[in-house]
Simulated assay, not measured.
Amino acid sequence: MMGRLLVTGGAGFIGSHIIDTALEAGWEVAALDNLSTGSRDNLPGDVPLYEVDLRHPEAVHAAVADFRPTVISHQAAQASVSVSVRQPVLDADINILGGLNLLMAAHHYGTERVIFASTGGAIYGEVDAGRADESAPVRPYSPYATSKLAFEYYLQTFYQQWGLEFTVLRYANVYGPRQNPHGEAGVVAIFTARLQAGLPLQINAREEPGDDGCVRDYVYVGDVARANLRAATGQIPRLMNVGTGAETTTRQLAQQLAATLGRPAELEFGPHRSGDLKRSVLDPGMSRAALGEPLDLTAGLQHLANWLEART
């Protein structure tokens, strides 16, 4: 037995993949999730689920006291840039204050390490050229990115004050099976649902409507899960990007996804959205050294297509 791993947001997209990977590796696992976007169906039937909102400190403390995790993988979040722009107080309430409730419980009940799902896709701001590595300046452009950065500093403080170990994983744009097109950020999931429904895909402008859209680094959820498991045993640096380093425009993504799913892509074009970065690409050198070569977009989209076909 590796230890006891509590995954917040464990019934959601990324969290449920972490749970699957942890079970295969021999961890004892539980999920904490308020089910606002996650689903019990994403979890194996024997995995305990604490149906808890991080904003309720007594419930958070009760869950951590009951399970007594060795490690907490903190994936639960308000994950939408556009929601954070519209409702920055809500974003901070969940991502900062809710996270602090979790850290206080972890400290109180003897958790050894917290792994934090941060954002490489937003925290570095505009990556005008090249790739952002872990030493790049942080320039949060949205309330979402600001709340993630603030929590990174809280983790450092809890380590300095109380010795709570931590690992920060700055994700690129994560995609893959189980991603919710309605409740979580994720253009791949949104485009997939629209293609399946025979609806057009909207390319939000990078600068002017009709261009190829924003540039992103898309990382497969299986690689994110592997990074979390390696972090759980303290085998990676305290701060690490999790991405591929490959840049893809929104138009390229739409066309490649449509081709992989074998469905026609009707494209529509919208204006630039408030809070959206024009270009965000991560340097994967550190994660490549720790985890090996990441799955490329072609292979990842094919995995997604195979999963969708198996469900029909």
Rank of each mutant, 00 (worst) to 15 (best):
A185C: 10
V221A: 00
V85D: 04
T157F: 13
A31P: 05
P209E: 00
E208H: 13
E207S: 11
I96P: 06
G270E: 15
A225H: 11
L169N: 06
W27L: 04
R194G: 02
R279S: 13
A231G: 01
A193E: 14
Q75T: 15
L199P: 09
A172H: 09
T249F: 10
F13N: 00
T146A: 06
L6G: 06
T146H: 05
V7Q: 03
Q252L: 08
N42C: 14
V7G: 03
T70F: 12
N101S: 09
A232C: 14
L5T: 12
L291K: 07
G234D: 02
S274M: 05
A22H: 08
Y218K: 02
P181T: 14
D20F: 07
L261H: 08
L297I: 13
Q75C: 14
T167H: 02
V221K: 06
L103F: 10
W27R: 01
G186T: 11
Q161P: 00
Y175F: 12
G125D: 01
R139N: 07
D33K: 01
E24F: 05
L6V: 07
Q78N: 09
R194M: 06
G110K: 06
S274V: 15
V60E: 00
P57G: 02
A22T: 02
D133S: 14
E28C: 09
D133G: 11
E112S: 10
G213S: 02
D41L: 04
Q161G: 00
T167R: 00
F269C: 01
F269T: 09
H61N: 00
D212Q: 02
I123T: 14
A265H: 12
P181K: 08
A145Y: 05
T250L: 11
Q160R: 13
P237Y: 07
R55W: 05
A106M: 02
L32T: 08
Y50L: 09
I19P: 13
P181L: 04
A254M: 14
P237T: 06
I18P: 01
L257T: 07
T250I: 08
P209H: 02
Y153L: 09
A129C: 02
A122Y: 06
A76D: 12
D212W: 00
F13A: 01
A258W: 04
G245M: 07
I94L: 14
A254S: 02
A227F: 09
H272Y: 15
D217S: 06
R113E: 03
L282Y: 09
Q179I: 05
A172T: 13
L155N: 12
E165F: 04
D20Y: 11
G26L: 10
S80T: 15
V29Y: 10
L54W: 02
D93G: 13
G300V: 08
E51Q: 12
L282P: 12
E51M: 03
A129W: 03
R4A: 08
G38P: 01
T244Y: 11
A11D: 04
V89A: 15
L295R: 14
F67Q: 05
A289M: 05
H107K: 15
V187S: 11
G186D: 10
G176N: 05
L277R: 06
E208N: 10
E165Y: 13
V219L: 11
A59C: 01
Q75P: 05
G210H: 09
E208S: 12
P140Q: 11
L304R: 04
R226N: 11
R230C: 03
Y124K: 13
Q202T: 10
L43H: 02
H56C: 00
L23F: 03
G110N: 00
A232I: 08
